[in-house]
Design a protein around this nucleic acid. Sequence first.
DNA 1: CTTAATATATTGTATGATTAAACGGGTTGC
DNA 2: GCAACCCGTTTAATCATACAATATATTAAG
Lengths: 274, 274
Amino acid sequence: MRSLQETASGHSVGTSDVEKKHLGESERAAKGVFVETVRQVSGSGAAMAMHDQIAISVGIEIVTGELPEGSALPTEAEAVELHGVSRTVYREAIRALVGKGLVSSRKKAGTRVNPRREWSLLDPDVLSWMFSAKPTKAAVQSLFELRLIVEPSAAALAALRRTDEQVSLMRDALVDMERHGLRKAAGREADGKFHSVILEATRNDFLRALTKPISTAIRWTTLLKFSSGRQPRDPMKLHRDLLTAIADGNPVQAHEVSMQLLQQAREDTEVMIT
Amino acid sequence: MRSLQETASGHSVGTSDVEKKHLGESERAAKGVFVETVRQVSGSGAAMAMHDQIAISVGIEIVTGELPEGSALPTEAEAVELHGVSRTVYREAIRALVGKGLVSSRKKAGTRVNPRREWSLLDPDVLSWMFSAKPTKAAVQSLFELRLIVEPSAAALAALRRTDEQVSLMRDALVDMERHGLRKAAGREADGKFHSVILEATRNDFLRALTKPISTAIRWTTLLKFSSGRQPRDPMKLHRDLLTAIADGNPVQAHEVSMQLLQQAREDTEVMIT
DNA sequence: CTTAATATATTGTATGATTAAACGGGTTGC
DNA sequence: GCAACCCGTTTAATCATACAATATATTAAG
């Protein structure tokens, strides 16, 4: 795969000295790695347009706090030199960030980082950008709190509304999960898939809209959980029990098991980041 | 306030014949009204940039099904003539829609409307665009289902974590709500504020991220509830009980009352759209 | 009929010029 | 001295045009 630096430098011919002045080579390389990581986890293998790369790069600076709330972004003229792209590209990148509530621009006043309250934290992009740095304990806790509110109820609805096809999709996911284990990307992918199908099965478009952010969160926190040396408890039994409850059309049981599953995951994850 | 048509036509001098050919004057006027309505409800009184107007206009066409899932948008060259704006502006508008998952563009292939599953339905813009047409019964039901899952638990958390200041904010909102009633915009605003403060008080950033979409949904569904001739039940008592439970720090009571409140609202609303 | 080279249409990027709005400061009038 | 107002400056917003890159469609070759 062609690296992002190559792509970027290909567009910045003739302005490389300016780039080096504002952003050291090593720093630039580190940023490239970030972008690369986010790309891999978010799964899109396709070649990425320049404006998306810029949006990711600036977006990460914002959600990781490198650009603090309320601070001013460089003027368009400066930013264009910094990133070595055209105003067209930079402006399109900023538009995307405005749409996610991260920044807002006004004439003369420039573009500023919005207060955190304005951010669309449930946007899959924003969420994955947050996880490109080590997330705070508070963020992980809040995420599990949200999952504990939503997912048990979703599981109950799924027990009432799931199709047979969805049951077998979940069964397949569990097989993959068991085969690969959660230390491998394929296993975490299967885990995310399992929980996604549950939200899908609720037949509620707005709960379905939570599928992407939640499965993003699952992938990242599971990675966190297994990145330390400690051995978390085996989650497979509870997963199987949850599948059984949903397959049997037992909403009460599904709610209960889902809750246990999440509480176990929360405990095992929070130990890692304390 | 200067109308959007004026602004638009101000930019389309010299291309008016083209515009008329593709988009009759009456049709254009109707679209202007849509944009105007969304602007009012979403509250932003500021003058709106051209690319935002285009994004809204195209966004509404998509979420209302006027541009069906999977269908191709006009090519940039065509769209630019249709809307009477520059390519810069149109492209920036499309970037925003890409960020919300509504469309995706590939070289040569053009820009297509994504399947509904990809849409960020919890994005406040997308949600308000959905309500610019009469929403489907399924959408309203799904929305209440989500609220019934999230808000009672949020109310319970709020009872444990609220500050005194938040209690008085809620008290103020109730006063405004009672004074204006829910038939007036000011009263609906206060209603939305009341529920927003509860989500705020959870001290959970991800639950807070649901504040905007949920309060958007509340404003619109309440408008719906009162737009028919029928007289819904008075929601004030339950609101007061909910405030009391949260002020007293009683999570169980808050959960219970919040649930009753939502069930009553759901019943009274669904009657209107059957 | 399949495959490979070529053409073409469409989005992506770059650049320069112009416009409009918001801010700061200075000027005028009282 | 103070306030209101005007004016230049800065900055994002818009326009116009040209060129690049690439996925698809077309055509030619085997």
